[in-house]
Design a protein around this nucleic acid. Structure first.
Lengths: 178, 178
DNA sequence: CATTCAATGTTGTCAGTGTCAATATAGAAA
DNA sequence: TTTCTATATTGACACTGACAACATTGAATG
């Protein structure tokens, strides 16, 4: 069920992940999914939970080969890569109206992801007296906002791919330097 | 038509702004809106265009009474206030799947808004040799990301309203200081 | 004033959707 | 062999966006 939902998501975005479309793709009647997920929100929530888990694996993999002084930065670059490589997945993961934000499994994944990032930020050097949460939120916000705006197409006609990545690097430099 | 759509948007979010609901609210048959908007996307695009215009007026008003050295910051605070005060409006304005991103009127509004911000950033002091676009994108991304994450409810249970605003201030300080 | 015609509104229909109810089936547990 | 739980199916309902056919209205034109 979820694997078919993921395929639909990648192909045509969250809107295309309909119960009936998933059922068709699984060669099953339109009401069969109801036995596994009470409603569409539950299906999408389960899918998003898996996506958070997949992303966390990406991060762990990237951190494993990262220089000790670049761990926070590696974290952000992993987020950036995930978002730009899988726009539909990224979009779904933050769509409050489509997910059950009170779901335990989903919350656990999100907390774990965020806690990992805060930890990397907290062990950054030159943290003298500064609240790591504030810095973590600022950094996360910037990366999230940049991905969201790029996926919205806002920056699309203002620069090409290559210079965009260069700008991203410059942005991270800017904030981390401070 | 649009005023009813706005009312529905504020009450129950973008999903509630359906052609038929707008028609019902206007005491008109379900197909009447088709004479003014070819499809739902066109209706939502027109609504979003108006929202961008309304936001620009907010900004102008705020800038009119802002200290000369705080103009860029005022801009960002206006964005933040708009997003947090009108979550549904803000959400619609960046929903690529619901709007016609090639619409001329919408693009004009967005360009104008962005150009105004880049201008304020460009005239900031201590700009020595730095690309104002990079700084503008970084700042805009951070504010946008922060709003998006707060509206997603990610930060919800991590701090209360007041300290959240304090944190926002701290974030802006952080980035502008650099 | 009468006619024309473009703008706008109405009714009816279609396929697609989420959700529910009633029913069927299969397979493990007893 | 029987029972019962998990799962699948069929059918229905209300809702949606979209289209087609038709009605109304009112201003411009002769």
């Amino acid at each position: 069920m979820i694997s078919q939902a993921l395929a639909l998501l990648d192909e045509a975005g969250p809107d295309a992940v309909t119960i009936r479309a998933v059922a068709r793709r699984a060669h099953v009647s339109h009401a069969a999914p109801a036995n596994h997920f009470p409603d569409r929100t539950a299906l999408l929530t389960a899918l998003a939970t898996d996506l958070f888990q997949m992303f966390e694996q990406d991060v762990e993999q990237a951190l494993a080969v990262a220089k000790p002084s670049y761990r926070a930065r590696t974290y952000m670059e992993a987020l950036l890569n995930f978002g730009l490589d899988h726009p539909h997945r990224y979009a779904l993961m933050w769509r409050r109206d489509l997910l059950d934000w009170n779901d335990l499994a989903l919350n656990t994944r999100m907390e774990s992801l965020y806690a990992g990032f805060v930890h990397e930020v907290a062990i950054l050097p030159k943290q003298a007296g500064r609240d790591p949460h504030t810095l973590a939120i600022a950094l996360w916000s910037m990366v999230h906002g940049y991905i969201a705006l790029r996926l919205s197409g806002v920056f699309e006609d203002r620069r090409d791919e290559v210079s965009g990545d260069a700008r991203t690097t410059a942005m991270l430099d800017l904030l981390l330097a401070s």
